[in-house]
Design a protein around this nucleic acid. Structure first.
Lengths: 551, 551
DNA sequence: TTGTGGGCTCCGAGCCGACAA
DNA sequence: TTGTCGGCTCGGAGCCCACAA
């Protein structure tokens, strides 16, 4: 039946199933491992042993990396073999960039031609004996075109799950008004995979036209369907914890403390931060002098996973206590209800929106850009009140530390309209990150002073803004769904990306979620063209890659 | 759901599920462990490592004994902890008898009041959506009586599986002609337990009237539905091997060689011989001078597990080569087609029918007694052509060894009508059983000479023939199924048992399958009586016990 | 565009007696 | 006595459109 061993998964498919928000460092790249972040995947109580407390971060080399899928739940996960790096092995900053650029080439090749679409199952989708409402865009972009001369148009789709097992779905276009549906075969799939409303299915079309389906389980049922491992896995755990045990984390930390290679398993989960992060990304973010009052934004997947949305907030505290940089930023989000799990974030998760004194700019939370607000599409750059003002962005970094009192007051305080800083910001010390200190790891110059002066030392091409290629699917095209009510469908990664802390922004700088991207004006109708070259597709990943290389 | 750990099972229920042919030595008793026999359960190729070859048998003490059930297949199995015995710990023969007699008391108490019935599932029984044809005798003996005034008589039976999980079956008595059926609930059971035609269900009524159901899986599908242990046991192995691994056998043998305690797991399987055998049983059988030409019989369960049948054959070779006593007898069975797996047997599996010169007696294979040939019931003793002739049986044992040439020729050869002995009988040596030799283990006297002289040394009461109590179920009784076509139903253990090698036959001497029993004439109609004392029942086990104590 | 509800169909699970071995 | 067959029923799986968000 289904394989008892985790399946090895094509990285293209894996990335589509994990979601675009997941950034997996490259094999043989340099990373930071955060034991605390690891523990968050294991223990909801976040209990930190003294050992883990003494290891706020561990510089490592990714010695092996497997993209795997759970044989029971179909969920994807990654297995890293991390080798702690001694100081002598730590590469200079520039080398990283070179590596990263190569990796980008790799990644582009990996994702070339892959189109994916994720849908959260509705109760109707998950009903026993029911069918599946295929979103029009999913059908148009991921499935072979129907013959709309037939009445009704219908085809038998063969779709491979993450293990390569084929499932057959009857894909029909019917009803009034017409819509795409899966009928025969769908219920069998739902039952066999034990899908419930709230779970997500991800359809992936590879460059050869073959279609795969992945699954992301909803985390809502936590400890409900718990089963004792390892035997008898008729059911599987829906818990967000449990796959990663506190013991495994302790073992990893213990090895890390001995500078011995260790294995970590990472299950992508919305709401959980990556705990193995590209060294460049971390170091980049740590060059910034994080202080309270800064306006930051964080990118999140939209509910349907097809786009990214920015949410904004204000840093209330940049106090790291003894935890190192992990979740050192406390942020009051403008919409706290949608960011329950992100009250404390790590610097590399967010981007600075504007220097503190830019808070004077008129800001209405209601005007926060959402990609699904189509009106913002054509002129995001002009409409974005947080678009960087070049002179400010550099001067904001001319300060020494992210720690309060001694530095915050001098320039920022007078400019801030906030009356008070949280008490937690008081009393942080400069020797916080021992024994493994970021200031040891980076050269002091780049760590402490990243003003405009550092820009000239950076050999990497400056690329302040990257233009996103926007693909529009035309409903008038015969090979797509006819009778579309709206002529345009926007998709891809749409947001305003700015990098205020550092002017060094280039192809190698995958920051946050790798999207330092700004949509430009575009209304091309190139469905025919896409059809010809076989990519057709316009999924988010492809869009991102095309962006880098069309530049 | 179902427990992932093996369930501990009531020994009464366990024995009923394992079948009466299975003899499990008692806790704290002395046994022989046969690594070769163990290996037969693991590897069909019967490959024997040099270590195992060097250990033809290991005298052990049963230090712990668990009666367990597989959580997935419901099959019962036993787990022994065996402690190898040094020579100084080996008990004299007489003590064993005393222990054995006590054990018999225990066993009788354990099985008191337990009634069981086994049925091999027909295709109709195992059909999805179908019901279960309850044999009349099963309904009458194992289930609470129906109210036959109702039309139709019907009840809801609550039946516990081997793990204690309750299953509910609608038990109805209907159809023309009337018969007992399970309808509602049966199909669910079949599907959940993945029963197929050929599997056996065993219904067990305990003394308190509660009903249990056990399962014996057919072995026919061997390597078909193989699943890789230990994870993902939606299916389970129907292989006869696989539960016991060659590695486990090697580990046991390795411990045994070091005189260290070791664990063995035993799955009862028809066609596979027990490899942990009561020391007394083994030693008893080894006192005989086994030679080719001897007529032997072996007891087998009838297909429906409700009775035992004797099959006869002629020893063609008694050469043990270097394997010790394990399967040292090569037997040409009169009906080889029904005894495929028993061409080579161990001495304790068979009983001598007559001394070699008794072959002159007129013998027709067609007259072999079968318990289901009712005509043999009333006068087995007189009709049995192989009934022992006391004078002969003792004199047959006045010979020194079971090994050929030097001894065989003297008395036996002239009396045998067989022209030739297999070549394998040549060349066996007396020092065969080193380092652990039976002749070391037993005192030389009892081993080499077991003529009539040894009888007087035996303190145990002589009991040459034991009478079986025969229970007859009367169909006229109102509380049983009405309208029975035949007035009598015979059941219980019906055969002729003789012990020719040794006159010492007593309550403690459970030989072969523990049935040294001879049916006597009986036609009692005691259904009412049985009903009153609550035992009602007359299952095979109870019959055997009653036999011992009615004497 | 797509989620949900209700109606309808159809298949198979499940119960039955007839019949025969 | 009991295994199997075919008929029948009934419930639910599964497909459809209407309607509404």
């Amino acid at each position: 039946m289904s394989p008892p061993q985790p399946s090895r998964v094509d990285p293209k498919i894996w990335r589509a199933c994990a979601g675009a928000a997941v950034q997996i460092p490259k094999l043989h790249s340099r990373v930071y491992y955060f034991p605390q972040g690891h523990m968050e995947h294991a223990s909801p109580s976040h209990y930190l042993s003294p050992l883990i407390r003494s290891l706020p971060f561990v510089p490592c080399h990714v010695s092996s990396l497997d993209f795997l899928a759970d044989p029971f739940s179909d969920e994807v996960f990654a297995k890293f073999l991390l080798t702690p790096l001694s100081q002598s092995q730590q590469q200079p900053f520039q080398n990283d960039n070179k590596e990263a650029r190569n990796d980008d080439d790799d990644e582009d090749r990996e994702n070339n031609g892959v189109v994916s679409f994720a849908k959260i199952l509705t109760p109707s989708d998950a009903n026993n004996g029911g069918g599946f409402s295929v979103p029009r865009f999913c059908a148009d972009s991921c499935f072979p075109p129907l013959d709309f001369r037939a009445d009704p148009p219908v085809q038998l789709l063969s779709v491979a799950d993450i293990h390569g097992v084929e499932w057959r779905f009857r894909h029909i276009y019917r009803g009034t008004p017409r819509r795409h549906l899966f009928t025969t075969g769908w219920s069998k799939f739902v039952n066999h995979k034990k899908l419930v409303a709230g779970d997500t299915v991800v359809f992936v079309k590879d460059s050869d036209g073959s279609v795969s389906v992945g699954i992301r389980r909803a985390a809502r049922f936590a400890a409900a369907i718990e089963t004792p491992p390892p035997a008898e896995r008729e059911g599987f755990s829906r818990s967000t914890t449990g796959r990663v045990t506190a013991e495994a984390v302790a073992a990893a930390a213990e090895s890390a403390a001995r500078n011995a290679p260790f294995e970590v398993v990472y299950y992508p989960r919305t709401g959980f931060a990556d705990f193995v992060v590209s060294a460049e990304v971390v170091e980049e973010s740590m060059k910034c002098a994080w202080v309270g009052g800064m306006r930051v934004k964080i990118s999140m997947e939209t509910e349907d996973s097809s786009r990214m949305t920015w949410y904004q907030g204000t840093v209330s505290s940049a106090c790291a206590s003894e935890n190192g940089p992990w979740r050192m930023l406390q942020v009051n989000w403008d919409e706290p209800e949608v960011l329950q799990n992100a009250k404390q974030v790590s610097p590399w998760q967010v981007e600075l929106v504007s220097p503190p004194f830019a808070l004077h700019t008129v800001f209405s939370p209601n005007k926060r850009l959402r990609a699904d607000q189509g009106s913002g599409l054509l002129s995001n750059r002009e409409q974005d009140p947080f678009f960087p003002m070049p002179g400010f962005s550099n001067s904001a970094m001319g300060h020494m530390t992210g720690f309060p009192n001694s530095t915050v007051g001098q320039m920022d305080k007078p400019l801030l309209s906030y009356e008070s800083f949280p008490a937690g910001m008081q009393g942080a010390r400069h020797d916080l990150y021992s024994p493994l200190s970021f200031s040891n790891f980076l050269n002091d110059n780049s760590y402490l002073y990243m003003g405009s002066g550092s820009f000239g030392n950076n050999p990497v091409q400056s690329l302040g803004t990257v233009t996103t290629e926007l693909n529009m699917s035309s409903s008038q095209s015969d090979d797509l769904s006819p009778h579309s009510q709206s002529s345009f469908h926007s998709f891809g990664t749409e947001f305003t990306g700015t990098r205020n802390c550092d002017t060094k922004v280039g192809p190698g700088s995958i920051l946050l979620f790798g999207k330092i991207i700004q949509p430009a004006e575009s209304d091309l109708h190139d469905a025919d063209c896409m059809e010809r070259d076989g990519s057709r597709g316009s999924n988010k990943l492809k869009t991102v890659e095309a962006c880098y290389f069309s530049k």
